[in-house]
């Protein structure tokens, strides 16, 4: 059973990867990768109150999601969305746990509503005005592929375009030691059921037990260290415009095989 969708837009933000267009040459190895902390832009699409309350996860999601949708030249209000994250807003979670361990447990309303796993989806709705379905998932290290499968089944079964976002942020210490995600990293894809003028690539997905592809050098270190970066081999294949197949890490021995071709 192969599931087919067309990628119409891509967003990417991570250490040394400042946007999809800025990163294509790095992924093709035609320009060198230079490690640099992820720079999260201020979420200008949010009203001032929400902008003030937004944490790293929200900024990351808005940046990659809107980059993908701009490339596809679509209106975000028209799109359903799929958000996957291996752990939501790590900084906020730490602040709540720290406060709950003291005698003054009066956490703030903003802390609390930012603690839900769907915090980025909620702010996304406010920023974009989209009232469409938004699915929010977590599958620990398999979160990116869980989100990709959810998005592709939306595309195929509900015959709709959708935007899929996989975003991870760091935990501060002491949680960092238990979950050492080194930096913020996000990938977004706009997926369509039909081949349109703005189609970048066709992907055909199936489950496999084949070994997952790895990368070279520092990109491989990123891929292994951050769950959302598990999608990098697919983005590299797209950047190189080569028809072919990549296998992405998913759950234990279950992986995703993706045939990529170009119109």
């Amino acid at each position: 059973m192969k599931l087919v969708a067309y990628i119409e837009g891509i967003g990417l933000l991570g250490p040394g990867l400042a946007g999809w267009h800025a990163s294509e040459a790095i992924l093709c190895a035609s320009s060198p990768y230079q490690a640099q902390k992820t720079v999260l832009p201020s979420p200008s699409s949010l009203p001032p109150a929400e902008r003030r309350r937004s944490g790293a996860l929200v900024k990351l999601a808005l940046a990659v999601g809107l980059e993908a949708i701009e490339t596809a030249r679509l209106n975000p209000a028209d799109l359903p969305s799929v958000f996957s994250s291996s752990g939501a807003d790590g900084e906020n979670c730490h602040a709540i746990c720290e406060m709950l361990a003291t005698s003054d447990r009066q956490i703030s309303p903003t802390r609390f509503h930012n603690s839900v796993h769907n915090t980025a989806a909620g702010y996304w709705g406010i920023a974009t005005g989209s009232m469409k379905n938004s699915s929010v998932l977590c599958a620990f290290d398999a979160s990116l592929c869980a989100g990709l499968l959810e998005a592709v089944t939306q595309v195929v079964v509900d015959n709709t375009r959708t935007v899929m976002l996989a975003c991870d942020t760091q935990y501060p210490e002491p949680l960092f030691r238990s979950r050492p995600i080194p930096d913020a990293f996000g990938i977004a894809l706009v997926l369509s059921p039909e081949r349109s003028a703005q189609a970048i690539a066709e992907i055909s997905i199936e489950l496999t037990e084949d070994k997952a592809d790895s990368m070279d050098g520092q990109l491989e270190a990123l891929r292994v260290a951050i769950p959302a970066a598990r999608g990098l081999p697919m983005l590299q294949a797209i950047a190189m415009r080569q028809n072919g197949r990549v296998v992405l890490d998913y759950l234990d021995a279950t992986r995703l095989s993706i045939d990529i071709s170009f119109p």
């Binding site: 699915s135 929010v136 998932l137 869980a146």
Partner: peptide, 30 residues
């Protein structure tokens, strides 16, 4: 199990929306 798996975590709609994710996976033939 070795099939697809996820936690759905959209606050208080989470375990209603699991039916949506399962339906799409089943209808897609996965």
């Amino acid at each position: 199990f070795s099939g697809p798996s996820a936690a759905i975590s959209s606050a208080c709609s989470s375990s209603a929306k699991v039916f949506g994710s399962a339906r799409r996976m089943m209808e897609a033939g996965l």
